[in-house]
Design a protein around this nucleic acid. Structure first.
Lengths: 348, 348
DNA sequence: ACATTTTCAGAAATCGTTTTCAGACATTAC
DNA sequence: GTAATGTCTGAAAACGATTTCTGAAAATGT
């Protein structure tokens, strides 16, 4: 049994009300305040948050539900959310769903039971659908995967445009048979696929998109088969960091050189994309901004619940590296953000 | 204001006690149970966890404090913890401290205010010291960084042995001027340094260890200067995944080929270590086991608080890849866990 | 010196649960 | 038919905080 406000009151010779007032900087005489503080220190008292939350009906907690905290994109976003919440004196309840609707549902239930102040989530496709039918009881902001949205505030990347940028770049580099692997569980994956398809068609090319579970293993497996088959592409676009890793692994396993046998481009500017092979061309997402914007939308809504849903669309930045520069090696020196020598020197 | 058990009771025409009994599978007649369930569904009632925790004095919550959730080592451990907790019907409160003692202290305070059932933490050196002087009020298990330990249960890697393994391997490959970069904020970093130093001396070599903040940037900066200087090593050991990335980046930036100009070995078998350059030789930690073991120690202690502190020491596995195989290329084909062809083919 | 205001502190209600205690009713035993 | 036994249900007391209401003492005004 732990120490309660009652014990402190007793020790200090005051009522619990007074102790509470001391804790919340209420009006209390200097000398009694001192006695209370002494008692708190002597007993090592810490307020019980459950009790406080129950009484005040204020959880001071932001829920954050993501699909996979191992994905650096989400760890970075999480960091942005946490920083903002911390500054506002709020706690963050972080949950990862593993792209599993069952877990997603159970965490959503948990959020309700915790009576969270607000929620930030990156829903799977299935959940997105459900959220429109059964709206949540508390303010929520969708990140990364908002779909057409509608009911909720959201912060997303301009996925179609970003996919188009990659296709355009590959096209200009002379690639024509450009394939793509896309996460099948998120609206984001689908949007990137749509952007890719549209961009391909606009250039008179036939798109060849494949929807996959967004994991390294799925990417590697699918890509291995694809590369070994008759319809192997010259270039490939991967819709997130995990699939991108899968593509690279498959290429290596099959002995396909990047970019001469296979050009590779993808999403998410993770540390390793800079050091692998000739460097990977990627779309960098403003990860920290996404978290910060989400919190800012959320706080606005908390202050003003009547607000109409807002959608913040951020732009990605295309970082060109060696993985897409086979045909015009001259372009390399101009465009690359980091010198190539290191990468080239990696070979024994 | 949200729906409470009282509303349900009213709607179902029973007392709150009965509703509570329905929720906890207590003895209640089938037909009333049905009515209550109907009311719950109709109202969309969800129990208030704060109230429940207050009443039962059971938080059903495990605290998990790590230094940096972006570090794949901790995300993996976290996953292990969460899985085990989930199976036991417990919630996990995840906090990352950024290797910052201030944040660490505040999260520890938070854990106390949440009245967590138990705690799993990877303390900084400074915190480790404090924990010995002011023992925690609730069961705790130290992971990854237990130091000499003493008061607490802990799960750690055999760091000295692992460091020795790397030195031994490099030595056998013919390297002599072997340097090392180690995280300065954790007991683990120091232990690996000690193991490295001891192993070097045992072979008649002079160790050259450098203590750094455990970040990519710190690793890259320190390594860049080191490699550019007169005392540049032939081989380098990095004590964690972040420093390892820093080493690789520095080598690339300076145009040092791996392994012919610089052999590289490190800790943490992250995905990218397999695909970068010729593949990086690393010590793989049993990450999931660490999390699972920690939870198991914690549960034991919850059931039997009188237990003497136990220390579980796990072994790492050395995965040899191309980054340490410059002198004896023949050894490559035998030892490597993955074929090298892919990596070699990466070069344009 | 008395009335009025201000300042500070305590009693008690409250938040939403669980749980104990006791009572109501039905069932079984004789 | 009464006593003894179960089965179910409700009233009320916690859990540990905050907050309202009220009153006592102190400070102020005249």
């Amino acid at each position: 049994m732990s120490i309660s406000i009652k014990d402190v009151a007793e020790k200090a010779g005051v009522s619990v009300a007074t102790v509470s007032r001391v804790l919340s900087e209420g009006p209390v005489r200097a000398d009694t305040k001192e006695r209370v503080h002494a008692a708190i220190k002597a007993l090592g008292y810490r307020p019980n948050l459950s009790a406080r939350r129950l009484r005040t009906q204020h959880a001071q907690t932001i829920g954050l539900i993501v699909s996979d905290i191992r994905n650096p994109f989400f760890t970075a976003v999480g960091r942005g959310v946490e920083d903002a919440a911390y500054r506002a004196g709020m706690r963050v309840l972080l949950c990862n769903t593993d792209e599993n609707v069952e877990r997603e549902r159970m965490y959503l239930r948990l959020m309700q039971e915790e009576r969270v102040t607000g929620l930030i989530l990156a829903p799977t496709l299935a959940m997105l659908d459900q959220l429109q039918k059964n709206p949540l009881q508390f303010p929520a902001v969708l990140i990364d995967r908002a779909g057409a949205g509608g009911l909720y505030d959201s912060v997303v990347l301009d996925n179609r445009e970003a996919a188009n940028t990659l296709v355009e770049h590959l096209f200009e580099e002379g690639y024509r048979r450009i394939g793509g692997v896309f996460g099948q569980t998120s609206a984001t994956g689908l949007e990137r696929r749509d952007g890719y398809c549209a961009s391909m068609k606009a250039r008179g090319l036939t798109p060849d998109p494949r929807l996959l579970p967004p994991t390294v293993d799925a990417g590697e497996k699918a890509m291995s088969e694809w590369l070994a088959g008759p319809d192997a592409p010259e270039a490939i676009i991967a819709s997130n960091g995990l699939l991108l890793m899968g593509v690279v692994k498959a290429a290596q396993r099959l002995g396909r050189a990047i970019p001469s046998d296979l050009a590779v481009a993808g999403f998410d500017n993770e540390d390793w994309t800079e050091v692998v092979g000739p460097g990977l061309t990627v779309i960098e997402q403003p990860v920290h901004d996404i978290g910060r914007n989400a919190m800012s939308l959320l706080f606005d809504r908390l202050q003003n619940p009547g607000l109409a849903p807002r959608k913040v669309v951020l732009s990605g930045r295309c970082i060109v590296r060696g993985s897409t520069l086979a045909s015009k090696p001259a372009a390399l020196a101009e465009n690359r953000s980091a010198p190539l020598t290191g990468a080239a020197a990696m070979n024994p």
